[in-house]
Each structure stands twice: as C-alpha cells, then as structure tokens.
C-alpha cells in the first residue's frame, strides 16, 4: 500500500476515534480545565510551525523565495476577511507572479 493510502487510513481511523470521545465515550464528564487549556494550545503551535516550514523550508534548508510573497498576499486577504478558498488563490497567484518576474 502506498504512503498516501496508509496516511489516509490511519488519520481517518484516528480522527473518527477523537470525534467519538465525547459523544460515545464520556457522556457526562468534563475535562479538567487545565488539560482543556493545554489541548487548546496544540493547534496554534502546529499551524504556526507549518506556516514556517511551508514558507521557508526547502528540505533541510531555510530559504527566502517567492513563497513569502504568497504568504504576505494571503495574510492581507485574511485581514480583509476573505474566505479561505480566496486566500488559497491569492497566495498561489502572488507566488506565481513573483516567480515569473524574478
């Protein structure tokens, strides 16, 4: 089986289980506030790391290239409250544009 399919199956099973924790598992219990607080910090930490690697990483090197233009343009779109799919298109166009002229 290919890497893509193993990933699809494993992430699928894991996510189904995570979504089931509340509705199927715990019913009337609550997470300790401290644990809930820490769990709420996981997503921003990982997403910020993905912004860094998707913008600057090339293998094991940090480089500055046309992708930074895509992130910058996407960030402007985000601040203007554009929907996510618009951010994707703006990011792609800005990156391709800078690559074309550089």
């Amino acid at each position: 089986m290919s890497a893509a399919w193993i990933t699809v199956l494993t992430v699928g099973v894991g996510t189904v289980a995570l979504k089931a924790v509340g509705p199927v598992g715990v019913a009337n219990r609550q997470l300790p506030p401290r644990v809930a607080e820490l769990l709420s910090m996981v997503a921003p930490a990982i997403l910020a790391a993905l912004v860094v690697t998707e913008t600057f990483a090339q293998g094991r090197h940090l480089v500055v290239d046309a992708r930074i233009a895509g992130v910058a343009a996407g960030a402007v779109a985000v601040l203007l409250r554009a929907p996510l799919w618009v951010v994707v298109i703006v990011g792609a166009l800005a990156t391709a544009g800078v690559r074309l002229i550089s």
Binding site: V42, P44, A48, V51, I68, G70, V71, L84, V87, G91
Partner: peptide, 30 residues
C-alpha cells in the same frame, strides 16, 4: 505558485486560532 498557496492557507488557519494570549504564545513558540 501552489507551494505559496499551502503556506498562505496555513497562515489563514492559524489566524483563526489566535483568539487569546495563550494561543498567540503557543504560535510564536511553535
């Protein structure tokens, strides 16, 4: 430019998560 689009999408998803100081700290450290 789809590589730049990936990065922009992650930025947008991150921005939506930054609702309090804890989240901002986690993002900066991450």
């Amino acid at each position: 430019g789809l590589d730049g689009a990936f990065a922009a999408l992650f930025f947008a998803l991150l921005f939506a998560q930054l609702s309090n100081r804890r989240a901002v700290t986690a993002a900066v450290v991450g």
